[in-house]
């Protein structure tokens, strides 16, 4: 038996958790490759044209995996403790089921409902039950996976601290993890920033609890948990960086409002809004990044009295 895991959306958040869980249970799994052009093209073909780029990419990954595995892992989250989620997370399982109905995809849902306190563990137990595993076995696997996830998060944060203590121009890239980590959406921008001599800081790597708590300092009624984490990390990191890039995939629902709120509320740092829409041309983005970095450099030179 082989499980297929699409390398998109929540994968980037739960990478260690899922991988360790299946490894512990001795279940083979296959990951879709990093996003490239033909995956995006395939995804756009299957998706509704108005859907966001991230969800088109997701469908591209699903399409790639369909013939290569026995089951597809499609997680569904209806809300987190910290807030609601974009309705895409609630709907994605049924979107995949309906889009690929003809190909008789066998889907495995990891449905995290908030009603029980240990919603996540219950979801994993249900998941492995569907695969014919015993409860005790899967609880152990889940706990081991949770440890691995926590360890990875700790390491990530330590690395973030090291980055922040380095010299040089630091740019906070505020984007959902599945966008910033994606080879197609986020990585070209991070690489370009590095080439231009700036140090990108990924906003999604932050102490989550603190971030959620500090989000209210910028926005009181923000409903979405994942946006809260990002907004909170802006509150945490803004003093340590030279500029902020709000990176978003067209037409992301939560970002359409949250990024507007951030651009209106952040007055002390230059802010650049970038929207990625699946077109390959990077020239326009590069020009904007270049002039953004130039503005920061000019501003800092002026602050030191050099100009």
């Amino acid at each position: 038996m082989k499980i297929g895991i699409p390398r998109a959306f929540l994968y980037y958040r739960y990478k260690e958790l899922w991988e360790t869980f299946f490894r512990e249970l001795g279940i083979e799994f296959i990951l879709s490759p990093e996003t490239q052009n033909d995956l995006v093209r395939a995804g756009s073909m299957h998706a509704i044209d108005e859907a966001c780029l991230s969800s088109k990419i997701y469908l591209g990954h699903v399409a790639w995996l369909l013939d290569k595995c026995d089951y597809l892992l499609i997680p569904r989250i209806s809300r987190y403790g910290a807030g609601t989620v974009c309705s895409k997370y609630q709907a994605i399982y049924d979107v995949v089921a309906n889009t690929f109905r003809k190909r008789r995809a066998r889907l495995l849902c990891c449905n995290i409902e908030p009603r029980t306190a240990d919603g996540e563990m219950a979801a994993f137990i249900r998941l492995s039950k569907a695969l014919g595993r015993k409860n005790a076995e899967s609880i152990l696997a889940y706990l081991a996976a949770k440890q691995a996830q926590k360890k990875a998060q700790r390491e990530e944060l330590e690395q973030q601290e090291r980055l922040l203590s380095r010299d040089g121009m630091k740019i906070l890239v505020v984007a959902h993890r599945y966008n910033v980590c994606d080879k197609f959406i986020g990585e070209p921008i991070l690489n370009r920033l590095r080439e231009m001599g700036a140090l990108p800081i990924i906003a999604d790597i932050a102490p989550k609890k603190e971030a959620v708590a500090r989000a209210s300092s910028l926005s009181e009624t923000l409903p979405w948990a994942l946006s809260k984490e990002l907004v909170g990390s802006v509150a945490i990191y803004r003093r340590h960086v030279d500029g902020i890039i709000l990176l978003s995939a067209f037409p992301c629902g939560p970002d359409s409002l949250v990024n507007e709120m951030l651009t209106r509320k952040i007055k002390d740092k230059p802010v650049l809004t970038l929207i990625m829409d699946g077109h390959r041309g990077m020239a326009g983005i590069e020009t904007r990044l270049e002039s953004f970095l130039d503005i920061i450099r000019f501003q800092e030179a002026r602050d030191y009295g050099c100009v």
Partner: peptide, 16 residues
């Protein structure tokens, strides 16, 4: 309205 996420997600179901 354009880009309404819940309704966009309902569309594959409606197509079926």
């Amino acid at each position: 309205s354009f880009g309404c996420t819940p309704e966009v997600d309902a569309m594959p179901v409606l197509q079926n």
